[in-house]
């Protein structure tokens, strides 16, 4: 653990990323205290530029506070991204594990399936899914999960295939342990590090996906997420630059931080692989 922390801290970007994420999470948690009113609440005149009266980041077309929107938006955006990533990790790991462990027909089918999903333009797929199943928190989470599991499944499958033949697994098999037990107690713990690394990158891409869906008007209509604020600002781009600039910066910083954390984790967890990293 100490080694890990040491290795992680050598990656300056990763440390900066952690700090930013902590700040964003703090903002999300403290939203109630900083902005006691609802983000939908009209608190000021419409179209107040930043740093006027008592609004820091300005107000939108109806007079709602952009700062409040970003703080509460952080909550929803992070939550949506985390839940959808959790769902797709659960699915991706299970599928990858079964496919890699059992091999054969199952594996062929799974690989075919993964290839199919990797061929379909994933953003298009997400849009089609949410649009047709009616936009809501659940459908957005579902759509993000559906398009983000394949790469992870592929990764886990490869891990399992190589670990399967290692001595400690073979030993467990000879000892007569059940397959489920071997998968859960022997192989899975040993293949967690790439999962953790992809996890942080998946949260980042989930945020991007969610914001793009909300931007197109495919978010939950009761949820003020960052993408929603930018989407609502589009028609008044010329009149209120602050409506689109600030939430965009919030997305950028969060996603950037998560990517940096992912890299740092990768370097810390797989020192050997660090050099081979591609995107």
């Amino acid at each position: 653990m100490k080694d890990f922390l040491h290795a992680f801290c050598r990656h300056k970007g990763g440390v900066a990323g952690v700090i930013v994420i902590i700040a964003v999470a703090g903002l999300a948690l403290a939203a109630n205290w900083i902005f006691p009113h609802d983000p939908w609440e009209i608190v000021n005149a419409p179209f107040m530029p930043p740093m006027t009266d008592d609004t820091l980041l300005g107000t939108d077309t109806l007079g709602r506070d952009i700062g409040a929107g970003i703080a509460y938006g952080a909550r929803l955006t992070l939550l949506l991204a985390a839940v959808s990533t959790a769902v797709s990790i659960l699915f991706g790991v299970s599928v990858g594990a079964i496919s890699g462990f059992y091999g054969g027909r199952v594996d062929q089918a799974v690989v075919g399936f993964i290839e199919l999903f990797q061929t379909i333009p994933s953003f298009f797929l997400a849009v089609v899914l949410v649009a047709i199943l009616t936009p809501s928190m659940t459908t957005v989470i579902f759509a993000i999960a559906v398009v983000s599991w394949p790469p992870l499944a592929r990764l886990v499958r490869a891990e399992f295939m190589s670990l399967k033949n290692r001595e400690f697994v073979q030993a467990a098999m000879l000892a007569g342990q059940s397959n489920a037990r071997i998968i859960l107690t022997q192989i899975l713990p040993n293949s967690l590090s790439p999962v953790i690394v992809s996890g942080s990158l998946m949260v980042a891409s989930a945020i991007l996906l969610e914001s793009a869906l909300s931007f197109l008007g495919l978010g939950d209509p009761n949820a003020m997420t960052w993408g929603y604020i930018i989407g609502a600002s589009r028609s008044v781009l010329r009149d209120a630059w602050w409506m689109s600039v600030f939430p965009g910066v919030a997305i950028l910083l969060t996603v950037l931080s998560l990517n940096l954390i992912g890299e740092a984790l990768n370097d810390a967890l797989n020192p050997k692989l660090a050099r081979k990293r591609t995107t």
């Binding site: 793009a212 931007f215 993408g227 689109s244 997305i251 950028l252 950037l256 940096l260």
Partner: peptide
Amino acid sequence: SMLAYATPLFWVGLM
């Protein structure tokens, strides 16, 4: 490239 990689496409367009 780190920055460009982390920016939402639609937002780049608006900016």
